[in-house]
Nucleic acid binder design. Structure first.
Length: 356
DNA sequence: AAGTCGGGGCA
DNA sequence: TGCCCAGACTT
C-alpha cells in the first residue's frame, strides 16, 4: 500500500481504498468469528503453535467439518508436539485413516520430530516454510495465527474473496500472481492472523462458492466484482477422470483377516489395506488372486478419488492356502482400529455383510 | 506448468 | 453426477 495507506496499484490490478478493507473485515470478525477448537478468541494475536500447525495441516484441501473430530482425537491422544514426535509413525497413520491425502500424516510425524529436536517451532515464515509438509500457505498461516507475524495468507477462500473484491477475471492459475499482490496490499500489519481467519470465515459463510450473500457482506461497499461474484474466480477446465477396475481379496482365518501395508508412495501410501490386484492410477488391476481357492464376489465398491474412479470387486474365498509375503492377521473384533482408509473400510464392510 | 494425491458434503 | 475444500510436492 502507498504512503497514505489508503490505496495501492498492484500490477494490472488497481486497488482503491486498500486501507479500508482490513478495519471493516476485522470489525465483522470481532462480532462473527467462528469458534473453532484450534482458535484463540479474536484479538488474542497468538495461539498454541502446535494446535495451529496441526489444524492447518489437517485443513489442507479438507473441510472444517471433516477436520474437527480428527483434531479432537489427535490433541486428546497427543497433547503437544513432543508427544506426537514420540509416537510410532504407523499409529499416527492409522489415526489419520479416513481423512485422506495420507502423505500429510507421514510428513506430520517427520515435522513433529524436527520441531522436537529444535525445541520449538520456528516463529518466522521462512523457518516454518522449511519444515516438512508446510508450503507457502501453511507457513504463512502459522506465522500469522500462532505467532502474530505479518504474513500474506492465501488459500482457496482468500483467492475467491480477493478475485471478487477486485473483479480479477484472469483464469486460475495465472491469476495467482495478481491475487497475491492484492492480498498483500490489503493485509494489515497488526492482527494479520485474525485478518486471515476473517477472510476464511467470510469465504466459508458469506463469500461462498455458490450463492454468495453479498447483501450482508461487510465488504460490499468495497467490492467491485459482486455483480458477477458467482463467476469469479475463473477456473480452468477439468480433465476427465479415468475409470479403473480392481479386485480386493478378503482372506479370513480363525476370526482374523489378512492385511498388508501399501508402499510408502502412491495411492493410499503407507496405509494398511486388503491385498488387491494392483489397480492404480495408470491401469486396471490384474484380476489375479494372491492364492488359489474358490473365490466369489461378495460385492462391489464404487469409490471416487481425485483423478480416478475405481470399481473394486470384493472377493472372498472358502479355505485355501495361507498367504505369503508381508502382512498380518488382524482380529475382526478390532477391525475398526486397523486404520483402514475409506476404500478398504468399505470393502471390508461388504465382505463382512456377505459373510453374515 | 502439469500431474499426483482422499474423502465427504453439497446442489 | 460434478464441484469444492484453510495445498504440498514431484516431475
Amino acid at each position: 500500500m502507498d504512503a497514505r495507506g489508503q490505496s495501492a496499484k498492484c500490477g494490472k490490478v488497481d486497488i482503491p481504498r486498500a486501507g479500508s478493507i482490513a478495519p471493516a473485515l476485522l470489525g465483522w470478525y470481532d462480532a462473527h468469528a467462528r469458534a473453532l477448537p484450534w482458535r484463540a478468541p479474536p484479538g488474542a494475536n497468538r495461539a498454541d503453535p502446535y494446535r495451529v500447525w496441526l489444524s492447518e495441516v489437517m485443513l489442507q484441501q479438507t473441510t472444517v467439518a471433516a477436520v474437527i473430530p480428527y483434531f479432537e482425537r489427535f490433541t486428546t491422544r497427543w497433547s503437544d508436539v513432543a508427544a506426537l514426535a514420540a509416537a510410532p509413525e504407523e499409529e499416527v497413520m492409522a489415526a489419520w485413516a479416513g481423512l485422506g491425502y495420507y502423505s500429510r500424516a507421514r510428513r506430520l510425524v517427520e515435522c513433529a520430530r524436527v520441531v522436537a529436536d529444535l525445541g520449538a517451532f520456528p516463529e518466522d515464515e521462512a523457518g516454518l516454510r522449511a519444515l516438512p509438509g508446510l508450503g507457502a500457505y501453511t507457513a504463512a498461516a502459522v506465522a500469522a495465527i500462532a505467532f502474530g507475524q505479518r504474513a500474506v495468507v492465501v488459500d482457496a477462500n482468500v483467492e475467491r474473496v480477493v478475485a471478487r473484491l477486485f473483479d480479477i477475471d484472469e483464469p486460475l492459475p495465472a491469476a495467482r500472481a495478481a491475487i497475491r499482490e492484492a492480498a498483500d496490499a490489503i493485509t494489515p500489519d497488526a492482527r494479520s492472523g485474525d485478518f486471515a481467519q476473517a477472510m476464511m470465515d467470510l469465504g466459508a459463510g458469506i463469500c461462498s462458492v455458490r450463492a454468495p450473500q453479498c447483501l450482508i457482506c461487510p465488504l460490499r461497499s468495497d467490492c467491485r466484482g459482486q455483480a458477477r461474484a458467482e463467476q469469479l474466480p475463473v477456473k480452468p477446465p477439468k480433465k476427465a477422470k479415468a475409470q479403473r477396475i480392481g479386485h480386493a481379496w478378503w482372506i479370513e482365518r480363525d476370526g482374523a483377516v489378512w492385511l498388508i501395508r501399501r508402499p510408502a508412495s502412491g495411492m493410499l501410501g503407507g496405509m494398511r489395506a486388503l491385498p488387491d490386484d494392483g489397480w492404480n492410477a495408470r491401469r486396471d488391476g490384474s484380476g489375479n488372486p494372491p492364492l488359489d481357492g474358490g473365490w466369489q464376489e461378495a460385492g462391489r465398491v464404487a469409490h471416487v478419488f481425485t483423478h480416478v474412479a475405481l470399481d473394486l470387486a470384493v472377493m472372498v474365498s472358502q479355505g485355501g492356502d495361507n498367504p505369503s509375503g508381508e502382512g498380518e492377521w488382524w482380529p475382526l473384533a478390532r477391525l475398526d482400529e486397523a486404520g483402514l482408509p475409506t476404500l478398504y473400510a468399505r470393502a471390508a464392510a461388504v465382505a463382512m455383510a456377505r459373510k453374515g
